[in-house]
Design a protein around this nucleic acid. Structure first.
Length: 95
DNA sequence: CTTCTAACA
DNA sequence: TGTTAGCA
């Protein structure tokens, strides 16, 4: 029922991440500026997107298609993350 | 690759 | 409001 959480290790450059998410590079940078994402940075300052970052990007695209704006999408993703953590805690306490 | 700015729908 | 193109 619960999908395994994607790796949070930054591995993709912005070009690859944008391609995987089906979005433009500028769009990815905008999402970061709006606080929807915080990809890792190399010492040189280039972004490194993880699988979980890609998952967030895909989720943002879904939410926007449903009529959310970027602020609303950020809220939903934040709440979903909290909800996920709580489900894990419930599972631990139930075990 | 980066940030920033301006224009478009 | 969100996306995109062009510049430095």
């Amino acid at each position: 029922m619960t999908d395994p959480a994607p790796s949070t290790l930054g591995v993709y450059g912005i070009t690859v991440a944008a391609e995987l998410a089906g979005l433009g590079e500028q769009t990815l940078r905008l999402y970061e500026r709006r606080g929807l994402l915080t990809p890792d940075r190399t010492s040189g300052g280039t972004r490194r997107y993880s699988d979980s970052d890609i998952a967030v990007l895909l989720r943002v695209a879904e939410l926007l298609a449903e009529g959310h704006n970027l602020v609303g999408a950020r809220r939903v993703i934040e709440l979903e993350a909290i909800n996920s953590d709580l489900r894990i805690r419930i599972a631990e306490l139930t075990a």
